[in-house]
C-alpha cells in the first residue's frame, strides 16, 4: 500500500468518527450542530497542548482531549438547551468560530507557539516501540479500533431507552416533555457524548499529523461532516460511515482529475461546488440517504409465539 493510501484511509477513519458523532447528535436526536469542527479543534488542541507544552503522557492527553470535547458540548448546550433548532444552528456555528478565534489569537507559552503558528512536534503514541516504516499501519489500526469503539457506543446509546427519548426529541420535544422526559438534560447529554467522540477524533488527528494550526479547523470541515451524514442517511449510523467514505473519496479523488498547477485553486473551488450540489440533490431527491434509517421490530404477539 502506498503511503498516501494509508494516509487517506486513516483520515477517512478520523472523519468517520466525526460523522458518527454528528449521526448521534443530528441523525438520532435532531440537534442542528453546525459547530462540529469546534469539538474537533478542542480535542486536537487540548490533546496537543497536554502532550507538548504540559508534557503529559500521550494517553492522558488523549483522555483530556475527549473530556475537553465533552465539556465543550455541555457548555454549548447549556444556554440553548430549551431553544428551537434554528437557534442551535446559529449558536453552534458561532461557538466553533469563537474557539477558532481564540486559538488563532492566543499564544501558548512562548511567542511562537499557538496563535497562527500552531503547535509543532506533537508526539505519536508508542513511537518508541512501534516506530519505523510500518508506523502508519499501526496508527491506522489505532484509528480503526477507535472508530469501531465509537460505533459500538453510538449504536448502544441509540438502542437504549435513552436513545428512544432522543429519537422522540428529534421530531417533537413537546411530546417527550408531556411524557415526563427531561428534554434539556437529554440534549445536554447528547452533546456531551457527541462532543467526547468528536474530541477523540480531534486528538487522533493532531497526533497523526504531528502539527496543527487554526487553518485546519475552518467551518468547511463542519460542512463536509454534514455532507457525510446527510448522504449516508440521517438516523442510520452505518450510513454515516458510508457517507464518510464516499465524501472522502470524492474530495480526494477529484484531486487527481487534471487541472494542472495553475488551476489548482479553481479545482479546489469546483470540488466544493460539486459537494454542495451533491448535498442539495440528496436533500431534494434522496432525503433519507443511501442507507435509510431502519425500523426496530418488536414483532406482534401471536407472531412471536407467546
Amino acid at each position: 500500500m502506498s503511503a498516501f493510501l494509508v494516509y487517506l484511509i486513516t483520515m477517512t477513519g478520523i472523519y468517520g468518527i466525526m460523522s458518527l458523532s454528528l449521526s448521534l447528535q443530528y441523525g438520532q436526536t435532531g440537534l442542528v450542530n453546525l459547530g462540529q469542527v469546534g469539538f474537533f479543534m478542542v480535542g486536537a488542541y487540548v490533546s496537543a497542548i497536554g502532550s507538548t507544552i504540559l508534557g503529559w503522557p500521550i494517553a492522558l492527553a488523549f483522555v483530556a482531549g475527549v473530556l475537553g470535547g465533552a465539556l465543550f458540548g455541555v457548555l454549548m448546550a447549556l444556554p440553548i438547551g430549551n431553544l428551537r433548532q434554528d437557534y442551535w444552528a446559529i449558536v453552534t456555528i458561532a461557538a466553533a468560530e469563537l474557539v477558532r478565534v481564540i486559538f488563532l489569537n492566543t499564544n501558548l507559552g512562548s511567542p511562537y507557539v499557538g496563535a497562527s503558528y500552531g503547535i509543532t512536534g506533537i508526539p505519536s503514541p508508542l513511537q518508541g516501540v512501534l516506530g519505523g516504516p510500518y508506523y502508519g499501519y499501526y496508527y491506522l489500526a489505532l484509528v480503526a479500533a477507535c472508530l469501531l469503539g465509537c460505533y459500538l457506543v453510538v449504536q448502544w446509546v441509540s438502542r437504549s431507552p435513552f436513545g428512544r427519548v432522543l429519537k422522540a426529541i428529534r421530531e417533537s420535544d413537546e411530546v417527550a416533555q408531556a411524557l415526563g422526559k427531561n428534554v434539556r438534560a437529554a440534549r445536554i447529554w447528547t452533546m456531551a457524548i457527541g462532543g467526547a467522540i468528536a474530541g477523540l477524533g480531534g486528538a487522533l488527528f493532531s497526533h497523526f499529523l504531528g502539527f496543527i494550526d487554526p487553518t485546519y479547523f475552518m467551518p468547511l470541515e463542519t460542512f463536509l461532516v454534514w455532507a457525510m451524514v446527510i448522504l449516508g442517511g440521517a438516523g442510520n449510523h452505518l450510513g454515516a460511515l458510508a457517507g464518510a467514505i464516499i465524501i472522502q473519496l470524492l474530495y480526494n479523488g477529484t484531486r487527481f482529475i487534471g487541472f494542472g498547477e495553475e488551476y489548482a485553486s479553481l479545482g479546489a473551488s469546483l470540488r466544493m461546488v460539486l459537494i454542495g450540489v451533491l448535498i442539495i440533490l440528496v436533500i431534494l431527491y434522496l432525503p433519507r440517504g443511501i442507507l435509510p434509517e431502519r425500523r426496530r421490530r418488536y414483532g406482534v404477539r401471536d407472531a412471536a409465539g407467546r
Binding site: R164, K167, A168, E171, R297
Partner: peptide, 12 residues
C-alpha cells in the same frame, strides 16, 4: 413522532 414505530412510541 412519525418516524418511530407504534411500539417505540408506546415504550417511550
Amino acid at each position: 413522532p412519525r418516524r418511530m414505530t407504534v411500539m417505540e412510541n408506546m415504550l417511550l
